[in-house]
Every structure is written in structure tokens, then in C-alpha cells.
Design a binder for these strands. Structure first.
Lengths: 241, 241
DNA sequence: CGACACCTTGAAGAGGTTCAAGAAATGTGG
DNA sequence: CCACATTTCTTGAACCTCTTCAAGGTGTCG
């Protein structure tokens, strides 16, 4: 009775409410268990998939932390997102049957492999799953709208403030602290995501620390004044008129 | 026999190959005709939907030109895309049942209203439609990755060059010229999309014109050296080492 | 024709980058 | 377990791109 405990099953996964729809019948739940073909471990630094890889599956992150990044023909690259437990990656591959970005584990990770054919098959039968898949994709579109707003119209401090608030908010939803976090990515990766150079990220961290808004020790960040960060995001270039 | 000619029908729409899947059976095609509930005219300057509106349908653009834009709580806004005939808008509304951006017609437009409930219903039966919906959403995600790369790592000239190339390429796919185009948006809207100020957009247009790469007369642009634009996009800050 | 929106151009200024050097942490191999 | 190599982070100073502010020109529509 302990060997079957290895069995991959959404029904008893504590992340289910993050990556699967709610309110499924017992029968539907059982069928969804079959969705996850296997699990796959990805050691820190390895890629789950790369630009150009054939698209076969979506991946639900069980543990660990990822970044996704695209690169232009001339070698520049851009981090398009950081993903944590319960989030789904691989959506970029659907349109052309090839992945168009790299997904790199920033710490040892494990993902649930959900073959896309099977997702499509099942979501024809289970309305809640169909709706769920649509929502996941729409959520990603809306998230990217937010990043475009950030990249297109915010200044360095606002970008970093928005970044920190977004991270703690997502971590908090997973039971972690609202005020303390450990960055899993380098300053350079943060900079790439935010459209800034690593020096600017570092300087801005220091500035926030000087102002008593946060405490920074390498990758350990403690937020002392959440309100100050929120103010920074919503009140741009100090217009008081 | 001429009143029914008003009937909304994908099966005899010349844009079908842009917004609908290929290789449908006659039967499937007939059922897809029912997808489009109505058409809706949107005069220039009006919104098709606004941030906060209830999400009910996706819209396929039949004629005209749209911009979509999001805005932050403090009033900044960001153009997230420009859409033309054959493209589908409204995907942002799926996740929360509310639209999270505005879709504004930049010229008199007409759209096909496709109630989302009906899309979901039909795509459970017609595999090609299901796959198509997934691809449309994935395509939007990939497009936004490209915009993030542009906003995060390109300089003004590269951004504008990429923007022009993208526009003509899409226009060309619709049977228009490869080298001549009429901008439907203001410099300010271009700037918002590209993360630049309108003056920078204007100056960069002038610079390209001085260099003989394009001709600009207000909103009329003629591309004289496509290759020069492509070079600008792929060869950044003149690194030759 | 006049009002309004849109576009262009110049000059000064700011925010972020680049280049450079050194400090701190991390990992590796003996 | 320590020493060394490597990666990551911080900070300063000079520079550059884009922005801001301002003024004038162009086009359009009632």
C-alpha cells in the first residue's frame, strides 16, 4: 500500500485549487487524474523546454521556480515571466506546435506533465475543464497586458515596486509571508524582466533600503512599508496638481 | 432572394481563412455560421467594449481598425495592440468575466459578434474549432512576448522599425502593398504602444526619412528600404565585434 | 474661415546606461 | 574544511538616449 502512493493524482494534490477547476464531481475528478501523464524533475539551471522544441504538453509546476524568456535573432533576450508552484507553463507552444521561449528552472523543480492532446480531449467532455483552460490562457494575456503597461510607462522605481508587490502577493497566496521573500533570480534576470540593467535594479534596491521601505541582504528581502511601495506604483512622477 | 443576402455567414466570408479554421466539412461549416450572432458597427472613436464591461463575446473584425488599451489606477494608459480585419479581440475578458481593457475603433469598423458561450459549446463538438480557439489565444500570448522584448530591450529606432515592419507584413497578408501604408493611429498612440513619447516617434520618423529609409507625409508612409529597417531590428547598438 | 487636433522641431534636462572597480557570496576541488 | 575561482552584487562617475517644455506649422472639419 505504499508503492501506489507514488501515483500521480490531482485529486489528492494540495495545489489542485491552483491549477485545476473547482466544483468537479467525483467522477470528473477521477478522469482528471489521468490528465497528468507523468511528473518530471528539473534540476536548477536546466530547461523544461526550449525555443524550437516540439510542443507536446502543458506543465503545472508542483515545486520550484521558473523563468521564461524569449530571445531575438541577434541574441538579446527578455525574461517574460517568473512562475511558481501551481502555475501553468507552455501555452506559447500551442499556436505553432513549437515552443517559442525557454523555460528554465531557477531552483530544483518538479512539474506535472499534461499532454495537450489529452487536455483537449478531456475538456470536450468536462465543461469546467474547458472553461478552466480558457481562463488560464486569458489570465496569461491579461498578465502580459500588465507587464506591457509596466514596461511602457513606468519608471525604474515604480517597476521594481510593482515587481516586489506582485511577488509577495503570489507568495502570500501560497501561504508564505506577506513581508518577507527570497528572490530566486539574479539582479540581471529581474532587470531583464523589468526592462532595466542589473545596476539599476541594484541601485533601486539600495534606494528603497535607504528610505526604509525594504531591507535587502542579497536575495533576502523584507518589506517594511508595503504602503510606500503601493504609493510608488500608483502615484507616478510626483504630480500633486 | 436579396434580403437573405444580409444573412451573417462565415461560410461565404472572404475573411474566413483569417478567423476560422481550415478544412471544415460542409456540415461543420454550416454549424459555424450560427456562431456569429450578429454584426455590429462601431463608428470611429467609439468603443467596442470598455474596461469593466461584462464579457459576453469575442469579436472578429470584418472591417476597420482598432486599438486596445489598458490603464493603471492612476490614469496612465498603454496601448496593448492594434488590430485589423480578420483578427479577434476580447480574449482579455474570459478570465474574470469582465473586460480589462478598452477596444476603440480607429476608423469606422464592423465586427462579427461571437457569443463566447456558443464558441465553447461548438468547440466541444468541432475539434478543429477547439484547436483554433486555443491557437488564437496562444498566438496572442506569443505576440505579447514579442512586444515585451521590444519594450524591454530595444531602442527607439529599433522599436519603430519593428512596428512598421509588423504593420506592413500584416497588411500585405491582407492584399495591401508591401511598401506603402496609411497609419490609422496618431503619433501619440504609436508612442504609447512602443513605450515612447509622441515627440520621439515623430523625430524617429523624420530621422528615417532623412536617411532615405522611408517617406513620410503625415500618416502616409512609404517604405523605401525594407532591408534597412530589418537591419535596424536585428542589429542593435552597432556591435560589430 | 476659424477652431481644433495633430505633427514637427529645437533646446535643456533627467533618468537610466555604460564602464570600471571592488566587495560579498557561492561553489569546487584538494 | 579551507583556499581559490567564479558568480553575483554594489557603488561611483561619465555619458547618452529619451523626455520635457515650448513654439510654430500643417491638416481637417464644421
Amino acid at each position: 500500500m505504499n508503492i501506489p502512493s507514488i501515483k500521480v493524482a490531482c485529486s489528492n494534490c494540495n495545489l489542485r485549487e491552483l491549477c485545476m477547476p473547482l466544483g468537479l464531481s467525483a467522477d470528473e475528478l477521477q478522469r482528471i487524474d489521468d490528465l497528468v501523464a507523468t511528473r518530471r524533475k528539473v534540476p536548477r539551471g536546466d530547461s523544461l523546454f526550449k525555443n524550437g522544441d516540439k510542443f507536446k504538453a502543458l506543465y503545472a509546476i508542483r515545486t520550484g521556480f521558473f523563468k521564461t524568456c524569449v530571445s531575438s535573432p541577434d541574441g538579446r533576450d527578455q525574461v517574460t515571466g517568473f512562475q511558481m508552484a501551481g502555475e501553468v507553463i507552455g501555452l506559447d507552444g500551442i499556436v505553432s506546435d513549437l515552443h517559442t521561449c525557454d523555460a528554465v528552472a531557477l531552483e530544483d523543480a518538479e512539474v506535472c506533465v499534461m499532454p495537450f492532446e489529452r487536455i483537449e480531449e478531456l475538456s470536450r467532455d468536462i465543461n469546467a475543464l474547458q472553461r478552466h483552460v480558457h481562463k488560464i490562457m486569458s489570465r496569461e494575456i491579461v498578465r502580459e497586458h500588465g507587464v506591457m503597461l509596466l514596461l511602457g510607462s513606468m519608471r525604474a522605481e515604480e517597476r521594481l515596486a510593482a515587481f516586489l508587490l506582485n511577488l509577495v502577493q503570489r507568495l502570500h497566496a501560497r501561504g508564505f509571508s506577506q513581508s518577507e521573500l527570497v528572490l530566486r533570480m539574479t539582479r540581471e534576470e529581474i532587470g531583464s524582466y523589468l526592462g532595466l540593467k542589473l545596476e539599476t535594479v541594484s541601485r533601486t534596491f539600495s534606494k528603497f533600503a535607504d528610505e526604509g521601505i525594504i531591507e535587502v541582504k542579497q536575495r533576502h528581502v523584507r518589506i517594511l512599508k508595503t504602503e510606500a511601495l503601493k504609493l510608488l506604483v500608483n502615484a507616478p512622477t510626483c504630480q500633486t496638481h
